[in-house]
Design a protein around this nucleic acid. Structure first.
Lengths: 343, 343
DNA sequence: CCAACTTATTAAAGTTCTTTAATTACTTTC
DNA sequence: GAAAGTAATTAAAGAACTTTAATAAGTTGG
């Protein structure tokens, strides 16, 4: 019984968002094309585009090709209108990506990790970017921990960040739009965006990280956070009589045959796939290239078919985790800049 | 990057929906109250309400109490404006509920089951209702099988209904708005509505039916259908070295101690709860009173805490399955009547 | 190079909402 | 039981969109 409703007051705002979204997607567009793909009438598009041009949000790049009539003005987003910063906080490094208003990465830096040191170091690092880039307006932080509305409240091994409210602090201090996201959630979002696939898909992105395995889950196009932000903590899955997923995957203390160990890993993964198939029945399950090879994947595919009917299995893919993760953070940042966030 | 957008053309329609939704919720309301709770200006509400009154969709029930001024006109939905039919197709019976425009059950019938006989019997049964109730406009069918857009495409044991397109046939034949939903999906929806809880919750509704166990899953307030409509088929969950959920729950062929059997059931259930907690981390997991007692539930609660940290466990509840199921079907019907469906 | 044709842009008129004002219908109080 | 007060309803003015018409700017072909 949810009724999303747009009051006339918000129309102007909505129209701008639509324009931004299309301009971001198509890079360059004309009034007629925008009217076409947004469904908004061309006089309105024209008027709004004028305003956006005056405010420096879009720029006129010239005239388009003609097919027998007056040549149309072409607009695109002004790359310099705003810049955003996407930060991945990992144990060993902080990865910073600077993004312009059209979504291009205009700078990338890896600085020392701050998770052990504490928030002060992070604030310093961010501060330098704020100084260097006066158009900085959006900041996205990816963290390996549970996040609720900009505050980290469960981050094992990095006690100094526990209960640290990134959003409150940095919005105040730097006057930026700040959002914080769990790393696997950002990753699954990143894949979803890169895949270009239809909206509303269900995905599971699995990572056997250093801090124990975890999964990012997306259902019907939305990230699943869980009632206590515990979603995707697959290490606890009771998949064997006396072992959970984590224990099955972990290297056993006793010397063990390599092939046997591999078989165990494959089976655990197969069961994991079966678990998701028999619950969410997702379209795709993603693995990290650091965790599994293509050959492993084939075996997992076979293995999981012994647990659930093969017709219902998701497609399994091996991915570069870092790429998807960074892309997810970038994506979140750009959406914020363009005003297309969740709000 | 989804942008729900309301064009001015659809405003009128949206306004009516808002009014219906509030009127359904509050039963009776005045112009001022409607303007208040919808956020729409009172002249617009007034005008729309007039139209709806002329068309017989709402009725004027009198004047409200005054607090020192002119007494306000009170409107409510016209119960007779439309009627809907919610049907649960089970093996042993077909349960029919007739609903008026304010959501009241104005008739209930249990007719013989039709699943074994085939679609003709069902068409007959429905036909009698169509004849008897000229205001019938909406039909909802609940079926124990996988459904895709009004067509059943996987319904074990009831071959005659396989690939039967309820929606196409009955919309044509009876000119009704028809929707078909899987039984467990309708059930979880029914609970969600009855609970009155906040939107956007994640729920799992478990049922150890005759046709093998199944679950209805809701994430962030949306029913999860899965890529091949296989979601919730928890019987396949590999929870033990050499048994899946279904096998663990099933009565073993050998004579076995009753308490031992119970312990096994409890453990399987505990693991199931653990599986959902470590993946979706739902707010609540529901069980059927036919499957589990309150005492069992306490043991499950304890048991699952041995698999995942207790803080993250969902609340566990025992429910009357049929009640929630029927309520879910009714709810779907009413939403369709009021134009609040998914569309 | 100009007439005929296309297409973009600008302008005007029409809808439909909101906001504000005026009127009407009650209540309350003296 | 008026007069004063309060709240609902109706009416008028304003805002922001769409639709339709008019105009401007190019193309193309003889």
């Amino acid at each position: 019984m949810k009724l999303p409703f747009v009051q006339p007051k918000m129309m102007g705002d909505m129209i701008r968002r639509q324009i931004r979204a299309v301009l971001y997607r198509d890079l360059v567009s004309t009034t007629a094309e925008l009217a076409q793909s947004t469904g908004i009438s061309f006089p309105t598009i024209s008027k709004t585009l004028d305003e956006m041009n005056n405010q420096g949000e879009v720029v006129l790049t010239g005239l388009g090709a003609s097919s027998g009539g007056r040549r149309p003005k072409q607009y695109r987003l002004n790359a310099d209108h705003m810049t955003g910063l996407a930060v991945a906080l990992e144990k060993d490094y902080s990865s910073y990506a600077l993004l312009n208003y059209v979504g291009e990465v205009i700078g990338r830096e890896k600085l020392p990790g701050v998770l052990h040191d504490g928030p002060e170091r992070l604030t310093e690092q961010i501060g330098t970017f704020v100084q260097r880039y006066p158009h900085l307006r959006a900041l996205t932080l990816g963290v390996p921990g549970a996040v609720n509305n900009g505050r980290v409240f469960h981050i094992p091994d990095y006690e100094k960040f526990k209960n640290f409210d990134f959003k409150a602090l940095y919005e105040e201090r730097f006057s930026l739009r700040v959002q914080v996201e769990n790393d696997m959630n950002a990753t699954v979002l990143g894949y979803h965006d890169r895949s270009g696939d239809d909206q509303n898909r269900s995905l599971v992105y699995l990572y056997l990280g250093q801090n124990g395995p975890g999964a990012g889950i997306m259902v019907n196009g939305d990230v699943v956070r869980g009632s206590s932000f515990f979603s995707g903590e697959v290490s606890f899955l009771p998949l064997y009589d006396s072992q959970n997923f984590s224990q099955a995957v972990q290297e056993p203390p006793s010397a063990q045959d390599g092939t046997e160990r591999r078989a165990k890993l494959i089976d655990a993964m197969s069961r994991l796939v079966a678990v998701f198939t028999a619950t969410l029945n997702p379209h795709t399950v993603l693995f990290c290239s650091t965790d599994l090879t293509e050959r492993d994947l084939a075996d997992v595919r076979k293995g999981s078919a012994s647990y659930v009917p093969a017709d219902n299995l998701p497609s399994l893919l091996v991915r570069d985790w870092e790429e998807d993760y960074f892309h997810g953070l970038n994506q979140l940042t750009i959406r914020t800049m363009l005003g297309l966030g969740i709000d």
